[in-house]
Computed example of a mutant assay.
Amino acid sequence: MTTPQRPECTVPLVEVAITEFDLACLRETGAVFDQLLTLHPKQVVIDLSGCRHIDAAAIGLLLDVHRRMVRAGGVLSVRNPNPRIARILQTARLDQILPVHTDSEAPPTAVTGPATPPAGGTTLPVAAPRTTAYGRATVTVRT
Rank of each mutant, 00 (worst) to 15 (best):
L36H: 04
L37T: 03
L37M: 06
L37G: 03
L37K: 03
T38K: 15
T38W: 10
T38V: 11
T38Q: 15
T38R: 15
L39M: 06
L39I: 02
L39E: 01
H40Y: 13
H40M: 15
P41C: 09
P41T: 05
P41K: 11
K42V: 09
K42H: 13
K42F: 14
K42R: 15
K42T: 12
Q43H: 15
Q43N: 08
Q43Y: 13
Q43W: 12
V44E: 00
V44Q: 04
I46A: 15
I46D: 01
D47Q: 07
D47S: 05
D47T: 08
D47P: 00
D47R: 03
L48H: 04
L48I: 12
L48E: 09
S49P: 08
S49V: 07
G50M: 11
G50W: 10
G50E: 12
C51S: 14
R52C: 12
R52S: 14
R52A: 15
I54N: 02
D55K: 08
D55W: 01
A56K: 10
A57T: 00
A58Y: 07
A58E: 01
I59T: 12
I59Y: 05
I59E: 09
G60M: 09
G60F: 11
G60D: 12
L61G: 12
L61I: 09
L61S: 08
L62A: 11
L62F: 13
L62G: 12
L63M: 15
L63N: 13
D64G: 11
D64T: 15
V65Q: 09
R67P: 12
R67Q: 15
R67N: 14
R68P: 07
R68S: 02
R68Q: 04
R68F: 05
R68G: 01
M69I: 01
M69P: 02
V70P: 02
V70H: 14
V70T: 10
V70G: 08
R71G: 09
R71I: 13
A72C: 03
G73R: 08
G74H: 11
V75P: 00
L76H: 02
L76P: 02
S77D: 12
S77R: 06
S77W: 13
V78L: 11
V78E: 05
V78P: 00
V78W: 05
V78C: 05
R79K: 14
R79D: 14
R79H: 14
N80H: 02
N80V: 04
N80C: 04
N80L: 00
P81M: 01
P81T: 03
P83R: 03
R84E: 07
R84C: 07
I85A: 00
I85V: 02
A86Y: 07
A86E: 07
A86K: 05
A86Q: 05
R87H: 14
R87K: 14
R87G: 11
L89S: 00
L89M: 09
L89K: 04
L89F: 06
L89A: 00
Q90L: 09
Q90S: 13
T91C: 10
T91S: 10
A92P: 11
R93H: 02
R93W: 03
L94A: 04
L94G: 01
L94H: 09
D95K: 00
D95P: 00
Q96K: 13
Q96S: 06
Q96M: 06
I97Q: 08
I97R: 06
I97C: 11
L98S: 06
P99V: 04
P99D: 14
V100L: 00
V100D: 02
H101A: 05
H101I: 02
T102A: 11
T102H: 13
T102E: 10
